[in-house]
Design a protein around this nucleic acid. Structure first.
Lengths: 248, 248
DNA sequence: TAGTGGTCTAGACCACATA
DNA sequence: ATGTGGTCTAGACCACTAG
């Protein structure tokens, strides 16, 4: 039988048990069987539930941990990953660092307004052009000095009742806020970076001359199933900060 | 990668067997028991050599594969990772992409010269200021159009006999060349990115007006033991290209 | 057909956390 | 003392590759 000219992927002839278990666990996480931060069932309990050995459950959980969907803690249990915990996980996606130190930024809200998705935003968020969106503008400051201006675009359908007051009342990270208030979990993201000259308005906010080269960081963040749920554009002054990345 | 010697680490009370096996295998790789691209001994052979079970060897090898030190191929064996193979591994560290497509760049050599390590280069490469270095300047082009100017600084002690002629005669990637000609393997790297205005010389090479915002990508690449062996500064025009990054 | 890595199991024991 | 995840073992079988 001649092999059909497949598009690169031969479609795996079978799917290992532990990956099927992993899929079932992802569904349980997605539907909220356990809440963020909570401990999920133990390996032995899951093994008996699914009728497989503890070792197979372990491989599934290790894969989930590699995806940052759960966190394993020896002696305590396996926990649903969350953006609300300590600084480490709270700023998991932030790649901007001080040139010298390791200080963490504070967020200052500038504006929250409603609008309609442009063609480009619609494409990135996989909604229809004109669909309602919420745009949050905020500044990240290190030591009181503004460094990044973020424009964060969210599909309004998923963030009903998002107001400036609520956002301001929340102390922790924005992703933690989205998680606890709207049940929207940011699982991964991709960023595209360009160098652009500062427009006058941004230059004013960041305290640099207009035309100063800035990093333009475009981010699309995804939730379960790779569905995009946030588009963000950050403009970053690199006078005393830089984008940090590790290549494995 | 091998875990960086963190401060604040309470020093683990014990070291699992499979990590000790991993360390032994790293030493074997470092000393060249198997050459890049070659298959290493099979799991069963290694298990009997070290007097542990196949499962323990497997965990060690899986960890090495996660660090990209080896590549596992079902039915064939476990192979020493290399930068000389297909495009995928050859450009493993390149994060610059075309805005539209997925074309790969070509390299054009501008200059190879010898010099002495400045204070900053000495600090980054962990050599003494004034130590001899080789600086390679080259351009990366997409479809014949220059996009990146790279200044690549190497400790001369590790790259004896590196000449422009040899570099030009080599078709593949530069890291593949370093690997086969000098036995220096680039295992991982970190990059720091800023936005800077194009200086007149660079602007001329890239065909953009002086002052145009460019990405300045500083990279330090490491070999075994986390020893830095390359410092590279790339200046990248983002008119039709961008830096791409995935956040897990 | 033989050899390789990949999956799955079952059980023992270890390290860690909590009560 | 108990329960959790982490390590280690031994063996069976499966999927893939090559001669």
């Amino acid at each position: 039988m001649t092999k059909p000219a497949l598009s690169a992927e031969p479609a795996p002839s079978f799917r290992p048990l532990y990956l099927q278990i992993k899929d079932l666990l992802v569904r349980s996480l997605e539907t909220g069987e356990w809440r963020p931060g909570e401990a999920i069932a133990s390996e032995l309990v899951l093994a008996s539930r699914f009728g497989v050995s503890q070792g197979t459950v372990r491989k599934a959980l290790d894969a989930l941990a590699a995806d940052h969907l759960v966190v394993r803690r020896q002696g305590k249990g396996t926990f649903v990953a969350t953006h609300t915990e300590e600084a480490q996980s709270s700023f998991r996606f932030l790649r901007i660092r001080q040139d010298g130190g390791s200080e963490l930024p504070a967020s200052r809200l500038l504006d929250v307004r409603r609008g309609k998705a442009s063609a480009e935003v619609a494409r990135l968020l996989e909604v229809k052009p004109g669909d309602p969106v919420v745009v949050v503008r905020r500044v990240l400051e290190w030591g009181g000095r503004p460094v990044i201006v973020d424009d964060i675009t969210l599909p309004a359908a998923l963030f009903r009742g998002l107001t400036r007051a609520k956002l301001e009342s929340y102390a922790g990270s924005m992703y933690g806020f989205f998680e606890t208030q709207f049940g929207v979990r940011m699982l991964n993201a991709q960023e595209r970076i360009k160098a652009v000259p500062a427009d006058p308005a941004t230059a004013g906010v960041l305290g640099v001359p207009a035309g100063t080269p800035l990093l333009a960081v475009d981010r699309v963040a995804h939730t379960y199933g790779g569905r995009p749920v946030e588009y963000r554009r950050g403009l970053c002054s690199t006078a005393a900060h830089h984008y940090f990345n590790v290549l494995g």
